[in-house]
Design a protein around this nucleic acid. Structure first.
Length: 555
RNA sequence: GGGCGUGUGGCCUAGUCAGGAUAGGGCGUCAGCCUCCUAAGCUGAAUGUCGGGGGUUCAAAUCCCUCCACGCCCGCCA
C-alpha cells in the first residue's frame, strides 16, 4: 500500500508538472509524504514556490484522493500528502494476515556466502558480525520473494590449516578430546604459531605440507581433513545457537580436486593482462590496482585467490546472482576478484563489506589467541538473561525461564550487531551487547509479548478499523511501511534498516499502549484497538523472525 | 607514502548514495508515572561549531575541494 501510494502519487505529479525529477520525501511531522518540487519550479519560472505548490495541490487533489487514498495539502512551498481512513483500514486488513510483509515470488536464484571463517579456531565476535549481517540479509531476501541458497566456503587447504595439521603432530595432541573441537584447534594453532616464530626454519615443513595437499597426497589430505571436520562441527553448534544455518558447505579443496582451479589458471594465463614467469599474476592497473594480483606460486601451488576465483565462477554459472559478505580486510582482494571475473566475462558478485569489531584493548587475533569467542559471548549472555528473567518472573519454572533466557540472549546479541551500519567499525562492549533495554532485541520482544498478553485476555473479537487517536494513526502508518522496508533492505542490502524499523514499531506500540486502553474500551473502539494490537503483534513477529529473533509470547 | 571506510550533545547511534520544513533515537543526568491491558515500559526537561576550513545552491549533516583524527588494506597469507 505504502509502496503503491508512492508510485501513484509520483506518477500523478510527473504528469501534472511535466517534470521528470519529482521525488517524494518523508513528510515528517507535517505529512506522510511530501514533494518539494515547487522549489525548483519557482526558481526556474521565477514565481513564488508557495503559489506553485497551491496550484499543484488543486490540480492533483481529486486524483490523489481517488487513486492513492490521500488528501493533498499545500504547506508553504511543500505539497503534502496525508493518508485517509481508507488507507488505514487497508493497512489493518493486510497486516493481520499471516506472512505480512512477504513480497511476491521473483525469478532467479541467489547464492549468498557468509561467515566462511577459517577453521583454525572458534568463531569470535568479529566473525559473527559477518554471520549476522549475512543471515539477516538471507532472511530478508527470502521474505522479499527470492529463492536463495546460503553457503559457507570452507578454507580447508590454506596455510593456517597446514599450521594446524603440523601443530597437531608436533604437539602430539588429540583434538577429538578435551573440549569443543574449534576451541581445541585454537589451542594447537596458537602454540604452533609460537613455535614457528621461535624457529622460522620449520616453515619449510609447512610449505611441504601445502605442496603435498595440493598434489592430492592421501595421507596429507587426511591430516588436513580431520581438524577441519572437528572445527566445522564446533562452528555449526555455535551458529545454531545464534539461529543461523547454512544450506551448503563448499570445500575449497574441491576446486583443486575437480581441476577447476588448474583450468582457470590456464585460461587466465592467456589474458593479455597475465604475466607468466615463474609465477602467474595479473596486471589489473586498468582497474586502478597498483600491484599485480598473484594467483600461482613459483612452486606451482595455487594461492587462495585462485581457488576463490574458481569457486566464484562455479557460483556464477549455477546461480543468477552472487552475494558475498566479507570483512573490510578483504576489500582489496574482493575487488580484485570482481575485476578479474569481469575480465573473464563471468558473473561478478555483489560484495557487502563490513568493518572490524575490536576489543577495547585492541584488535582481535586468532593467531595470538586474543579474542572473545562467540561461545563465551553466548554463554555470558544466557547467564545474564536468566538472572533477568528470574528477577522479573520468579513464579515460572526453571525450564520455562531457561527457554525465555535463551531467546532473550540471542535477541540481545543479534540486535546489538545488526543495528549498526556495516561501514562503521565498532568496539565490543559487554554492557552494550548484553543490554536488555531500549534499542535492544529484548525490548522489541517485550512489545510483542505485551501484545500477546492483551490478545490472550481479550478472547474473541470482531475485526474492526474505526481509528481515531494520534497514537493509533501513527502506529498503523508505521505498520503500513513494513513491506517497503523489506524491499529497501534487499534493494540496498542494508539489514540495519529492518532493526531500526522494528524498534520504531515497538516504540509506537508502547506509546499507544500507555495512551489508550484496549480491553477496557467499549464496542467498536475495543474491536478496532484489538485489531490494531493484532496487526502490531503480527508485524512485530514477522520483523523479529526476519531478524532471526524469537517472537516469544511471554517473557 | 597510496587506496578504501568512518567522524553527528559526556558516551553510543540513525539520517549522507537520490540536498529541502525545528538534525531523529538510546545510554547517562534531572522531574514525574505501577489501586489501570507485562515498568525489559511511558511522559516531560536539559545537553549539538553534524571533525575543521573553503566552495556550489533559493536551500548543505547530505554535493565539490582541502586539511585533521581513527579503523582496515597495500604478503608467492587467507
Amino acid at each position: 500500500m505504502y509502496i503503491d501510494a508512492i508510485v501513484k502519487i509520483t506518477a500523478i505529479l510527473k504528469e501534472v508538472t511535466g517534470r521528470d525529477d519529482v521525488i517524494l520525501i518523508d513528510g515528517g511531522d507535517h505529512a506522510d509524504l511530501a514533494s518539494p518540487v515547487a522549489f525548483a519550479m519557482g526558481k526556474e519560472e521565477k514565481r513564488s514556490p508557495a503559489l506553485i505548490a497551491k496550484q499543484i495541490t488543486e490540480q492533483v487533489y481529486d486524483r490523489v484522493l481517488e487513486e492513492a487514498w490521500a488528501t493533498t495539502v499545500a504547506a508553504g512551498p511543500y505539497v503534502n500528502f496525508i493518508f485517509d481512513s481508507r488507507y488505514l483500514s487497508a493497512v489493518l486488513d493486510a497486516a493481520v494476515r499471516e506472512g505480512y510483509g512477504s513480497l511476491p515470488p521473483r525469478k532467479g536464484r541467489i547464492v549468498l556466502e557468509h561467515t566462511s571463517a577459517n577453521p583454525n579456531g572458534p568463531l569470535h565476535v568479529g566473525h559473527i558480525r559477518n554471520t549476522i549481517i549475512g543471515d539477516t540479509l538471507a532472511r530478508c531476501f527470502r521474505k522479499a520473494g527470492y529463492q536463495l541458497e546460503v553457503q559457507y566456503y570452507v578454507n580447508d587447504m590454506g596455510r593456517q590449516i597446514a599450521i594446524v595439521a603440523w601443530g597437531i603432530e608436533e604437539q602430539k595432541e588429540d583434538i577429538t578430546t578435551g573440549g569443543k573441537g574449534d576451541h581445541r584447534i585454537a589451542e594447537v594453532y596458537v602454540t604452533a604459531n609460537k613455535a614457528l616464530l621461535a624457529d622460522p626454519e620449520k616453515n619449510a615443513e609447512i610449505d611441504s605440507l601445502m605442496q603435498r595437499v595440493e598434489a592430492g597426497d592421501p595421507a596429507t589430505v587426511a591430516r588436513f581433513r580431520e581438524p577441519v571436520k572437528q572445527c566445522l562441527s564446533g562452528f555449526k553448534e555455535t551458529l545454531a545457537g545464534l539461529h543461523v544455518t547454512h544450506d551448503r558447505f563448499v570445500y575449497e579443496s574441491d576446486f583443486i580436486r575437480n581441476g577447476d582451479t588448474q583450468r582457470l589458471l590456464a585460461r587466465l594465463s592467456w589474458l593479455p593482462q597475465a604475466t607468466r614467469t615463474d609465477i602467474l599474476s595479473l596486471d589489473l592497473s586498468s582497474f586502478g590496482f597498483e600491484k599485480d594480483y598473484i594467483l600461482q606460486r613459483s612452486d606451482g601451488t595455487s594461492v587462495y585467490a585462485a581457488r576463490d576465483l574458481a569457486y566464484h565462477m562455479w557460483k556464477g554459472r549455477n546461480f543468477d546472482r552472487v552475494i558475498d559478505v566479507l570483512g573490510a580486510d578483504h576489500k582489496l582482494i574482493g575487488t580484485q576478484l570482481q575485476a578479474t571475473l569481469r575480465l573473464l566475462g563471468e558473473r561478478v558478485p555483489d560484495i557487502i563489506f563490513f568493518e572490524f569489531v575490536s576489543l577495547p584493548e585492541g584488535s582481535m587475533s586468532t593467531r595470538r589467541g586474543k579474542f572473545i569467542s562467540a561461545d563465551d559471548l553466548l554463554s555470558e549472555a544466557r547467564d545474564r538473561a536468566l538472572d533477568e528473567v528470574t528477577k522479573r518472573r520468579p513464579e515460572l519454572d526453571e525450564a520455562t525461564r531457561i527457554a525465555i533466557a535463551t531467546s532473550v540472549c540471542i535477541a540481545a546479541i543479534r540486535y546489538d550487531i545488526i543495528k549498526t551500519i556495516p561501514e562503521k567499525s565498532t568496539v565490543f562492549s559487554w554492557d552494550e551487547a548484553l543490554d536488555f533495554e531500549k534499542q535492544s532485541g529484548p525490548y522489541i520482544q517485550y512489545a510483542h509479548a505485551r501484545a500477546c498478553s492483551i490478545l490472550d485476555k481479550a478472547g474473541e473479537f470482531t475485526h474492526a478499523t474505526e481509528i481515531g487517536t494520534d497514537s493509533e494513526i501513527a502506529l498503523i502508518k508505521h505498520i503500513g511501511r513494513f513491506p517497503s522496508v523489506i524491499e529497501q533492505v534487499t534493494e540496498e542490502q542494508k539489514p540495519h534498516l529492518l532493526a531500526l524499523y522494528a524498534r520504531e514499531l515497538a516504540d509506537l506500540f508502547n506509546s499507544f499502549y500507555h495512551a489508550e486502553p484496549v480491553l477496557k474500551a467499549r464496542e467498536i473502539t475495543r474491536n478496532s484497538r484489538l485489531t490494531l494490537v493484532q496487526a502490531t503483534r503480527n508485524t512485530l513477529q514477522e520483523a523479529l523472525v526476519t531478524l532471526g529473533i524469537d517472537a516469544v509470547r511471554s517473557m
